[in-house]
């Protein structure tokens, strides 16, 4: 009987995890457990009650450079950090040998050089977390609300040009989503087309 229930459980899991399921905005964000670059355990579901921003990054991608060299991403992080209970997780899914793949030490140096304000940096060289979220580009942004529901997925802003000149006047979707969430409104733009370099799986 116990075996049967186990078998049934495994079967249900198979049904629940179709091969190409992208996380659905408005539904529970997929949970994952890993360690950050300092060896601290990170489990998404432990952070219920906080708003979590996931940022897919690759420091050599021109689109990431566009937002860091201009200071736009750091400003967004600072604005997020100023809101009580917002955590910012930066994730690198570049596979070994691919652009943007770094070790923990290099990763910390990049964070320092960028002057980034983040809660944790996570290296995902296997691409498991990236594929779990169907992260396609760098940057690709996800905002998870305090209930653990995926509230926003898509681009950082509405200017998909690689040119830093387009940052001024762009609509920052992440800040807009955070603003909606903290004022108790529904997220006005819950999903946009992510733009940038392909994640180097």
């Amino acid at each position: 009987m116990k075996k049967l229930t186990q078998l049934l459980g495994a079967f249900m899991l198979l049904i629940a995890m179709p091969a190409h399921a992208a996380p659905v905005v408005g539904e529970t964000a997929p949970d994952f457990m890993t360690t950050d670059i300092h060896g601290n355990a990170f489990k998404l579901s432990d952070h219920k009650g906080k708003i979590v921003v996931l940022e897919w990054t690759n420091h050599k991608c021109p689109f990431v450079i566009k937002h860091y060299r201009s200071g736009n991403m750091q400003a967004t992080q600072k604005a997020a950090a100023a809101i009580d209970g917002v955590e910012w997780i930066s994730i690198v899914s570049s596979a070994p040998g691919k652009q943007g793949n770094v070790d923990a030490k290099e990763a910390q140096k990049i964070v320092d050089d960028q002057g980034a304000t983040i809660t944790a940096k996570i290296l995902d060289p296997s691409g498991a977390i990236g594929k779990l979220y169907a992260a396609k580009t760098t940057p690709h942004m996800f905002v998870i609300d305090t209930q653990g529901t995926l509230a926003y997925a898509g681009a950082i802003d509405d200017k998909s040009s690689p040119s830093p000149k387009t940052i001024k006047g762009a609509k920052n979707y992440v800040l807009a989503a955070l603003d909606n969430l903290t004022t108790g409104q529904p997220v006005e733009t819950p999903q946009t087309m992510p733009y940038g370099c392909a994640v180097k799986y």
């Binding site: 690689p162 370099c197 392909a198």
Partner: peptide, 14 residues
Amino acid sequence: FEVLVCKEECIPEF
């Protein structure tokens, strides 16, 4: 004219 050109890595050219 602005064009993004990629192989694995990407380069924006202006």
